[in-house]
Design a protein around this nucleic acid. Structure first.
Lengths: 346, 346
DNA sequence: TTGTAAGCGTTATCAT
DNA sequence: ATGATAACGCTTACAA
């Protein structure tokens, strides 16, 4: 089998037109704007298409129309479960549409994001989904020039490029920390890995509440730029306990870090939640199953991906959502790891 | 901004040709077969390309050459960490190549796989990566007709469509169970969710070893068709303990199930590994961090994705790997959850 | 409602 | 080594 010379398309519009006894334009129209074609013609075209097994050639469509059916999806990481959920939402949502997602990975690197956007721009995508709200000016410009619907996902904020769907990470951080204070914890630490813009905002929420309560103390905050993982979570917990032994609870950047911190506490024989309260973020499956279960902030990543696609499809049909910015909110899932007032322990 | 009429390409081959004072063909050749172009012409073309900021139009390339730069990647699930690792390998590997992966999700459904393959075929992909070795005859036929390199990933087996990279799941199952027997466990159960073809083969490995040891007992095997998850793992463990209370160890389908089983044992106060030994499969990060750490079988999913792309790229350059089938092997990672002989417990 | 004709930007064929 | 020319399969004016 030679790879260079592949047989060309077997059945083309022309073949269908011939079989249906109409011109190619009519076939094309029957496919994309059936309203402009008579019922009779439409039927004959449909019959011919089915009989011949015609399938459109996407490259030809893209070339002629200067529009592909690709939806570009720009995420900072593929390692992370959080982005996996987003991708799943996107993949499920494109089903039944003519669109296909194309995923690219910035690795949290702004310049790389610009390059990837430029690359995607050459494909004239039908729509774009990008993570977060902190694009560089250049990236925003490229997105604006793409001439397609753009949805920023994962968080909400002012000044959308086009549309936006996510949640308020500052508010989520505040809610998590307030919960810990409500449970009677006072020396509440913050454990953070990666510290991307959304993590920074959750930290800001933490700080706001701690300051308002007069409980803030820089020695309670331990972060690292490393990617988050269970092992990093354990190490951060250890570091915090060394630096600030009287810490009585932690709000963790995400559930990976929280679970790692939990394991570290178990290794050290610190009882949870009596000696140490733990709250995570994202509400991964595991947080509801671990022993003890972990309090976390549930976000709606799958829905963000799913609805972002829907927003793009709607916009392409001139039916943009009423609101350009959609806040999907979050839910604090109170579980054993922070429920001190009821006195449960491991 | 109108979405329907988007500006056409600003800089085309023709523009470059004009600027360089050569014909379009020469520019095209300078780009794809530089050896056939004089040094002088090449330099002028390069200069012009840089000056104008020319970027090729993928749709035009695909239409004219009947070949896109897409690599189709067919996986059965996106929920699973295992496939996330594969995707990561693929995404990293295409970097620096002109290729872009297009991921589709069969949801473990053979007919759906056929449809997706037909859809991908219309794009004339540069290469195909498909999961597993159990394609339907129709799927195999479509793949064979695509006229591009095809790599089956995740497992090895006879009769590749074209190329293959993975590991031997029967052997992996045998190794896991032998380890448990070596550690003195005798009533070794099998916990399995989803039970896709690869899980079936691991179960076959389990059975082979148990039968050879004269220890097989159908009451030790508990499986479900549900997708695997921590909670399902917990339930399966509970079911097995109800049915066969003297079970003293379990080989789990994968690490999700293993961790769920571990949590269930903790809830029931069963000491690990003394009362219950646990071995998982896949060696997810968490298995090295949990308390206790979980023995697992490490596979090389990232590498499979990465190398599958490399195999395709090589094949496209007429440099196929010497072996069509590559076995990446596996490694038993012995950890606390099954190390009974040294007497460690949680 | 339907058709004609002219691209879209590139690669392939065949000369030179 | 280079170029003229014809595809590639489809869409989009514009005309009828």
């Amino acid at each position: 089998m030679s790879i260079k010379n592949y047989k060309r398309q077997s059945v083309t519009l022309t073949d269908v037109a011939e079989a249906a006894g109409v011109s190619v334009v009519t076939v094309s129209r029957a496919l994309r704007t059936p309203d402009l074609v008579s019922q009779a013609a439409r039927d004959r075209v449909d019959t011919a298409i089915r009989a011949l097994g015609y399938v459109p050639n996407p490259a030809a469509q893209a070339l002629a129309s200067a529009r592909s059916r690709i939806i570009g999806v720009v995420i900072p990481s593929v390692t992370n479960q959080v982005f996996a959920d987003l991708l799943r939402g996107v993949m499920d949502a494109v089903e039944g549409t003519p669109h296909a997602p194309q995923f690219v990975n910035t690795r949290f690197h702004g310049a790389r994001e610009e390059d990837l956007l430029r690359m995607l721009a050459t494909q004239r995508p039908a729509g774009m989904i990008v993570t977060g709200t902190d694009q560089t000016a250049a990236s925003r410009a490229i997105l604006g020039d793409m001439g397609c619907p753009v949805v920023q996902v994962m968080e909400t904020g002012p000044d959308p490029v086009d549309m936006m769907i996510g949640c308020d990470h500052v508010a989520a951080g505040r809610a998590a920390v307030r919960h810990l204070l409500d449970q009677g914890y006072r020396r509440v630490g913050f454990l953070g890995a990666r510290m991307d813009p959304r993590a920074q905002r959750r930290l800001a929420g933490y700080r706001a509440v701690m300051e308002a309560a007069g409980l803030d103390d820089p020695a309670l905050v331990v972060t690292t730029a490393e990617p988050s993982s269970y092992s990093v979570g354990g190490r951060l917990m250890g570091d915090l306990l060394s630096a600030t032994p009287d810490t009585d609870a932690v709000f963790c950047n995400n559930d990976d870090v929280a679970l790692g911190a939990l394991f570290e506490c178990q290794r050290r024989g610190l009882r949870i939640p009596s000696r140490m309260g733990i709250v995570g973020f994202n509400d991964l499956d595991i947080s509801a199953c671990s022993v003890p279960t972990i309090t976390s902030v549930r976000t709606h990543r799958y829905d963000m991906g799913h609805r972002a696609v829907e927003m793009i499809v709607a916009a392409l049909e001139d039916a943009r959502p009423a609101e350009a910015v959609i806040d999907l909110g979050f839910t604090l899932m109170e579980r054993q790891s922070s429920r001190r007032l009821e006195g449960k322990t491991t």
